[in-house]
Amino acid sequence: MNQNKSIFMKYGTLILITLQTTILVLTLRYSRKNSSQDEAYFNSTAVFLSEFVKFFICMAVIIYSDSFLGLYYVFRDEVFGKPKELSKILVPAFLYTVQNNLLFLALTNLDAATYQVTYQFKIITTALFSRWILNKDLSNRQWCSLFMLMLGVILVQWPNDNHRSSSIQMNENRLIGLISIILSSLSSGFSGVYFEKLIKVSKSQSLWIRNLQLAILSCLFASFTIIVYDFNEINLKGFFYGYNSLTYMVIGLQAFGGICVSLVMKYADNILKGFATTISIILSSLCSHFIFDDFSSSLNFFIGASLVVLSTMLYSF
Rank of each mutant, 00 (worst) to 15 (best):
L14K: 04
S206R: 09
K273A: 11
R164A: 03
I23Q: 10
S306V: 02
S6I: 15
S206Y: 09
N171E: 11
V74L: 10
L86D: 11
V98I: 05
H163A: 12
F190W: 14
D38K: 15
I17D: 02
L110E: 07
V264D: 03
V250H: 13
F80G: 06
I57H: 09
N2R: 12
V153R: 06
L90H: 03
L103G: 01
L151I: 04
G192Y: 08
K10G: 09
M313C: 08
Q213I: 00
L283K: 00
K136A: 09
I226Y: 08
L26A: 13
I291C: 12
S206D: 10
N109V: 14
L134Q: 06
M313T: 00
I63L: 02
Q142V: 01
S184V: 05
H163Y: 14
R131G: 15
I63S: 03
N4M: 08
I15V: 02
L138A: 07
I216P: 05
S316H: 04
S298Y: 10
A113E: 13
T114M: 15
L310W: 14
F94V: 01
G152W: 05
Y229T: 00
N211D: 07
L102H: 02
S145P: 07
N235T: 05
S165V: 07
I154M: 07
L69F: 13
Y11D: 06
L107N: 01
A40D: 00
G252C: 12
N100T: 01
I62G: 03
F75P: 13
V25W: 06
Y248G: 09
S223M: 11
S296G: 08
D269V: 14
Q205N: 06
M59N: 05
C144K: 14
S284P: 05
R131P: 03
F94A: 03
F295H: 07
S50M: 15
N211Y: 09
L307C: 11
M1R: 07
S139E: 05
A215G: 08
F240N: 00
I123F: 08
I181T: 00
V53L: 14
F292V: 01
L107Y: 07
F239A: 02
L151P: 02
V308K: 01
K266P: 08
G177Y: 14
E196H: 13
S285W: 15
K33C: 05
Y115K: 09
I182D: 11
Q20P: 04
V153P: 00
V117H: 00
K10M: 14
S36E: 15
E78L: 09
F48Y: 10
Y96G: 12
F104T: 06
N43G: 06
L246D: 09
L214R: 12
N235W: 09
N270W: 04
H289G: 04
T247E: 03
N100H: 11
Y115W: 11
F121P: 12
F240R: 05
A113D: 08
R164I: 04
L16S: 13
V228L: 05
